[in-house]
């Protein structure tokens, strides 16, 4: 699956990182708890979250997460988008809730992350 596929499945729009839409994604995770994301995620993952702050981008950058999907139509600030751009991360926004977005992606064959990063 590619980031473009993710965008179509969650009926999302791209806010930054249009050039990355053809990058592959292998897994996804949905969480508002960055502590958990830091503990469980591996790379080429999509992060679906309803939490909007700069630490979502920092967490994603540390883990080589390639795409963040903000759920429930939330709009990240310019600062967040600039950080994501600098970190080479695509940012999408969807009107779906986190639960629905995750469910749609899972149904379309995108599995969850493994439990360990190493």
């Amino acid at each position: 699956m590619t980031i473009r596929d993710v965008m179509e499945i969650v009926e999302g729009v791209v806010l930054t990182g249009e050039d990355k839409l053809d990058s592959p994604v292998d897994t996804a995770c949905g969480s508002d708890l960055m502590s958990d994301v830091l503990a469980f995620v591996k790379d080429k993952t999509v992060l679906i979250t309803g939490l909007i702050n700069t630490h979502v981008v920092r967490t994603a950058e540390m883990l080589d997460i390639t795409c963040i999907v903000f759920s429930r139509g939330k709009q990240p600030s310019e600062e967040i988008l600039e950080m994501a751009q600098e970190a080479d991360i695509a940012v999408l926004s969807t009107r779906m809730t986190t639960y629905t977005a995750c469910g749609e992606l899972y149904t379309h064959g995108l599995p969850g992350t493994r439990e360990k990063t190493n």
Binding site: M34, S35, A39, L51, N118
Partner: peptide, 16 residues
Amino acid sequence: TLGFGAGMGLPNMKRN
């Protein structure tokens, strides 16, 4: 509020 403080930090450092 920022998404941290779940009591995972130190164990996660040790694991990595």
